[in-house]
């Protein structure tokens, strides 16, 4: 396996809220190898975006607080790094693209200006050189007539084009890690596929490792090599993408996979009812001592509600935190 590039060890993030302390991330450990795409899946409020912000060092403090853990980029603990060092890291070594391409670009600057900005900030390029870099990036992300569109403003572009511009911005300094926070959620399906292709293509060419945050199992199947399933701020299952898709062990993972509609030849007759996971993610201030998924889990029993399941390795690189697996293994 390739060398580990980024690793998160035992991360815990807490937020002070009116209802008490919410532990939005609890004992999270993930690692990202060079050139790898790691998928992080889960519903809204599972701590996926917070994981990304923690890595970027952008958790709003206060009300947030990093309660425990370490985040290593190579051998450097980013949580101990100074703010000045973090500014160097952001955009230069770790970049991020956001969910909403419509609002992630500054409306008052031309897109060329915004892409050039990253290069000028980190590499001290002259205005002309930075523009040249911006142009190259726009060509690389497949913007047609890039030499004309470089002067356009965000409102003159479609959502898919803007997301391409965001990607160009994020990759302008050839970062080693790209965090994509639901990059296609706001886009049309056809455009989604284009963005996936683009990301895969750029990854192959530049070797940038990608952390892909999504709630869409289809996107995971398309993009990721490894998958981390998060629920209520915890990792409930982690495995290679094939294992997750063919042999999901955690009831939550199984539920997420069942939620993806399948295309069938004759929709009216063969279409099975689309399954859902009942309920919603519980408020994080009200988690009891048991498995956080227990209230929504069809297999939950007394033990699930009382005790937190330990994380257990069941296969090479496949870990699950569920009492069911635990009991199976014991039996």
């Amino acid at each position: 396996m390739a060398k580990t590039l980024l690793s998160v060890e035992g991360l815990a993030v807490e937020f002070d809220t009116r209802d008490g302390v919410a532990r939005v991330i609890d004992d999270l450990s993930i690692s990202l190898a060079e050139g790898e795409t790691l998928g992080i899946v889960g519903e809204s409020g599972c701590g996926k975006s917070m994981t990304a912000l923690s890595i970027m060092g952008l958790v709003p403090i206060p009300p947030g607080r990093i309660a425990a853990g370490r985040i290593f980029l190579d051998d450097e603990d980013l949580l101990q790094a100074s703010e000045a060092r973090m500014r160097e890291v952001r955009g230069n070594e770790i970049s991020m693209i956001f969910q909403e391409p419509m609002t992630s670009l500054n409306p008052v600057y031309s897109i060329g200006n915004q892409i050039a900005e990253t290069a000028r900030l980190h590499e001290g390029l002259s205005r002309a050189d930075a523009f040249q870099r911006a142009l190259e990036m726009l060509v690389a992300v497949g913007i047609p007539a890039a030499d004309k569109r470089i002067h356009e403003f965000p409102h003159q572009m479609s959502g898919g084009m803007r997301q391409r511009v965001m990607i160009a911005m994020a990759l302008a300094c050839q970062p080693r890690v790209l965090i994509a926070d639901e990059p296609t959620t706001a886009l049309d399906v056809t455009v989604q596929a284009q963005i996936f292709d683009l990301l895969n293509d750029l990854k192959d060419r530049t070797g940038t490792a990608i952390i892909m945050i999504t709630h869409d199992m289809g996107a995971i199947a398309e993009m990721a090599q490894r998958v981390v399933v998060m629920y209520a701020g915890r990792v409930v299952e982690q495995a290679d993408v094939d294992q997750i898709l063919t042999d999901p062990r955690h009831p939550y993972t199984q539920g997420l996979i069942r939620c993806v509609p399948h295309l069938t030849q004759n929709p009216t007759k063969e279409r099975p009812p689309l399954l859902e996971i009942p309920g919603v993610v519980p408020p994080l201030t009200q988690l009891g001592s048991g498995c956080p998924f227990a209230p929504r889990c069809q297999y939950a029993d007394a033990q699930c509600r009382a005790e937190m399941p330990p994380t257990k390795a069941i296969d090479d690189g496949h870990t699950v935190a569920c009492w069911l697996t635990e009991r199976e293994a014991a039996a």
Binding site: M86, R87, E88, R90, M96, E100, S104, N106, L121, H122
Partner: peptide, 13 residues
């Protein structure tokens, strides 16, 4: 706004 978050994420002070 997201673009402020985006500016932070490219390392702006």
């Amino acid at each position: 706004q997201e673009f402020v978050k985006a500016a932070r994420s490219i390392g702006a002070r």
